[in-house]
């Protein structure tokens, strides 16, 4: 039961109270860049969730069985970014061959994910928090779901912003950042859940 509760706590934390976007500032670039329409935001969110889950699993294995074993911890950053870059490339080729529909839906976003700091961030945080394999994967997937939730909510607000009346100099990124700031304020309300 304890493990179930701890996994539940990790999931709730990653989705709500410690949301990657609103409280840890990881993955802001795609969050601001691909959130002009809800459809694209959903595509990006799903792609990120998928890659984050896989990347957490693989980097955990690489870290435990290669880096720690041969005492190469200082190579962590280089090793992780290479793993993530090749993983993204591999997923792209795999989807192109076997699931062309999914590939056309996600295609554009996949290369962008290599430089999404949420993916490298989740790999590093897993190690920092001493998570075991299952916890790492759960943290990766739920972190991705948190990203999906944040980007979809944000995109739907941003679509409505077109009709809003605000000073001309705030057009584009500034008004988007203010919106995101207010959303972060709302998400702060979830921090009460941390008592678990």
């Amino acid at each position: 039961m304890d493990t179930v509760f701890s996994l539940l706590a990790i999931s709730l934390g990653a989705i709500l109270s410690n949301n990657f976007i609103f409280s840890q500032f990881l993955g802001i670039c795609p969050f601001l860049g691909v959130s002009k329409k809800v459809d694209t935001a959903v595509g990006m969110g799903i792609a990120v969730t998928f890659v984050m889950g896989l990347a957490s699993a693989i980097t955990w294995v690489v870290n435990t069985f290669i880096l720690v074993k041969f005492d190469l911890m200082y190579m962590q950053t280089v090793a992780f970014i290479l793993v993530i870059a090749s993983l993204v490339q591999f997923i792209e080729m795999f989807l192109q061959k076997s699931m062309p529909t999914l590939y056309t839906a996600l295609g554009v976003y996949l290369p962008l994910i290599t430089t999404n700091c949420a993916v490298l961030g989740v790999a590093l945080l897993n190690i920092q928090n001493n998570y075991n394999f299952i916890e790492s994967v759960v943290y990766g997937v739920t972190g991705g779901l948190g990203f999906l939730l944040a980007i979809v909510l944000f995109a739907s607000i941003r679509e409505k912003l077109v009709f809003a009346d605000y000073p001309k100099n705030w057009e584009g990124f500034p008004i988007a950042l203010v919106t995101a700031g207010l959303m972060a304020l709302a998400f702060m309300g979830f921090s009460g859940l941390q008592v678990w």
């Binding site: 500032f25 100099n169 584009g172 500034p174 203010v178 700031g181 304020l185």
Partner: peptide
């Protein structure tokens, strides 16, 4: 205290970019 929390980051950066757009335009 809010300004040192994530909220403050978004708001201050938004304001700075708006200021920059004003200055450049």
């Amino acid at each position: 205290g809010m300004m040192t929390l994530p909220v403050g980051g978004f708001l201050v950066l938004g304001a700075l970019i708006a200021l920059m757009q004003w200055a450049l335009n």
